[in-house]
Design a protein around this nucleic acid. Structure first.
Length: 536
RNA sequence: GCCAGGGUAGCUCAGCGGUAGAGCAGGGGACUCAUAAGCCCUUGGUCGUGGGUUCGAUUCCCUCCCCUGGCACCA
């Protein structure tokens, strides 16, 4: 089997509840994943949680739980989010899983044996209360540390470092040679600017176990655990390796852990069945797209490629960087309460309304602004009155005038529909999701216009116009069918409902079905039902 | 402080040498299949400021102001 299109989200740190930012990143990743499947490519979509580290250890302690129990609870919440958002992820990685830890250890052992890691002392100001080193940024205006830090003393601590700095020139060359490696371009330019102007330091990759126990031990020095980088970033690589992907195991050579042979287990999903077939050989690495937020660009565009390069592992093809959401023009903050709870929106408006709004409102890259009024406006105008009403009036007229029986084929809208599908295909390949929705709605609007121009409700009153009415009705229901196919990556539930109302059994999950003439004359459609009920 | 991007209709943005466009919002109209939805028409702008180049600048150049992002520094 050929290599799958392998796409990942960032893994979420389990120090709080899932919020809009988490949900947004997962939705756009899911749309890309579904789009590639719809285009006929095998896909592997990975998401998960980042569970080690001091904050987790402290948070667990604060509520009197073990770190593991605390992580289990929060991981369950993030897994519930993937279900609520109707994500088609093929696996869900938790960094506390043995399959992940084994790969992290293998990678580090290889680097250690190669001499890419070294131990060195670190001297700094340490807050015993907060259990962290402070920097000059933490000093007050008078040069002292604020009392909130508690006792602060100068401390010397040995730690392990990764020889990152020596790869700076190589990375710069790589970025210059691969314009797609970081997208959008302005993010790439920022990284290029950074690499040209700043000398990279080596990366501190450990914490003494005495100070931080909740982490993956360094395989060559049991007094230390991993600090962030090789733990969190490696998740993208550890899943393919654990699944036995030769593309991931071969670079590790003798260091490779034994593959579990376990196939990804994600319950209750419909998409990507072929991906989960147990016989299929898993070929994922290198990853095609890492979807991340702008706050972690440097880790993914600098640290991660250098880590992989040093280990002799092929690099992912692209880091795709999205922006952040504001609420009503202001930063979302728990303390002020101006937050958007994605689960509440899904509950009140439906998962597809949520998916639609976030993809339609914000292009991948810039920051966006969530307003409840804007959400409501798009829901009403574009989903209910646009798409929903079109499908509803089209099916209702076929039921009323032709008893729900599809008439003879007519190709009046065929050209426009195929042009839409063609344009959308190109946009999906380019990850232009917002543009894709605009393209689809161009067809929605055209079809609504077509109803008024052809006025089937007038034709129905004149028996002499029967064949003309047939033609118009065919164009409308066939357009509705193809809309379901086009919408699938974005609004899978809605797409399935349209197909179902059309009385079809298949799932509209392949763009190849967007070919004109798929509805057979004589087919009996089902009953129309509003897709997006108007709210009050 | 340095680098990049941006300031165009009430809102979100496109245009980038020949005195401006889209969507939404606002106004009007004809219709009735439909979730009182949809369709058609339409009012809105001295294109951030001040200069310059040009026959002519929103469009090119310079100054300044403001916003956003990145980096650095200080705290």
């Amino acid at each position: 089997m050929s290599k799958r299109f392998y796409i990942t989200t960032a893994i979420d740190y389990v120090n709080g509840q899932p919020h809009l930012g988490h949900a947004y990143e997962k939705v756009i990743t899911d749309v890309i994943a579904r789009a590639r499947r719809s285009l006929g490519e095998p896909v592997f979509f990975l998401t998960g949680t980042d569970e080690h580290g001091q904050k987790v250890q402290q948070a667990a302690q604060a509520v009197g739980k073990t770190a593991q129990a605390y992580c289990d609870e929060l991981a369950a919440q993030f897994q519930a989010l993937t279900v609520a958002l109707n994500l088609s992820n093929d696996d869900f990685i938790r960094t506390t899983e043995p399959r992940h830890k084994a790969v992290v250890s293998a990678l580090l052992t290889k680097l250690h044996d190669q001499g890419d890691l070294y131990k060195a002392p670190y001297r700094g100001w340490y807050s015993w209360k907060e259990e962290t080193f402070l920097t000059d940024k933490d000093r007050g205006p008078d040069g002292t540390f604020a009392p909130t830090w508690g006792e602060v003393t100068e401390l010397v601590e040995e730690n392990w470092y990764f020889r990152m700095s020596r790869h700076q020139g190589w990375l710069l060359d790589h970025l210059e040679a691969h314009p797609d490696f970081v997208q959008p371009d302005y993010r790439r330019n920022e990284i290029l600017g950074f690499l040209r102007s700043v000398a990279l330091d080596d990366l501190c990759i450990s914490r003494p176990r005495a100070r931080l126990s909740w982490g993956i031990p360094l395989p060559f020095d049991p007094d230390y655990v991993n600090y962030v980088w090789f733990d969190a970033l490696t998740n993208y690589f550890s899943v393919p390796a654990a699944l036995g992907d030769p593309g991931a195991l071969e670079p590790l050579g003798a260091y490779a852990p034994k593959a579990e042979g376990r196939r990804p287990k994600v319950e209750g999903r419909s998409a990507g069945d072929e991906v989960r077939s147990p016989e299929a050989e898993v070929r994922l690495w290198p990853a095609d797209v890492h979807v991340i937020g702008k706050d972690i660009v440097r880790f993914h565009a600098v640290y991660w490629p250098i880590m992989l390069h040093a280990a002799g592992v092929p690099l992912p093809h692209q880091v795709l960087v999205h922006g952040w959401w504001q609420k009503d023009g202001e930063k979302m903050s728990k303390t002020t309460g101006n937050v958007v709870d994605p689960l509440a929106v899904v509950r009140d408006w439906g998962v597809d309304a949520f998916r639609y709004y976030v993809v339609r409102e914000l292009d991948i890259g810039p920051d966006g602004n969530w307003t409840d009024a804007g959400f409501r406006a798009r829901y009403t105008a574009e989903l209910a009155n646009g798409l929903g009403n079109l499908v509803n009036r089209s099916l209702a007229m076929l039921q009323r005038y032709r008893g729900g029986i599809v008439p003879a084929r007519s190709d009046e809208l065929a050209t426009e529909v195929l042009q839409t599908a063609s344009r959308l295909t190109a946009q999906l390949r380019a990850h232009q999701l917002q543009a894709g929705l605009i393209t689809i709605w161009g067809l929605v609007n055209r079809a609504n216009q077509y109803v008024d121009q052809t006025a089937p409700f007038k034709l129905a009153k004149d028996p002499a116009q029967a064949s003309r009415l047939d033609a118009v009705l065919y164009n409308l229901v066939e357009t509705s069918r193809i809309l379901a196919v086009l919408l699938w990556p974005f609004l899978p539930t809605t797409a399935a409902r349209i197909t179902q109302q059309l009385g079809l059994n298949e799932t509209p999950d392949h763009l190849s079905a967007a070919d004109w003439g798929g509805l057979a004359p004589g087919h009996r459609i089902g009953q129309p039902e509003p897709l997006f009920p108007r709210k009050e």
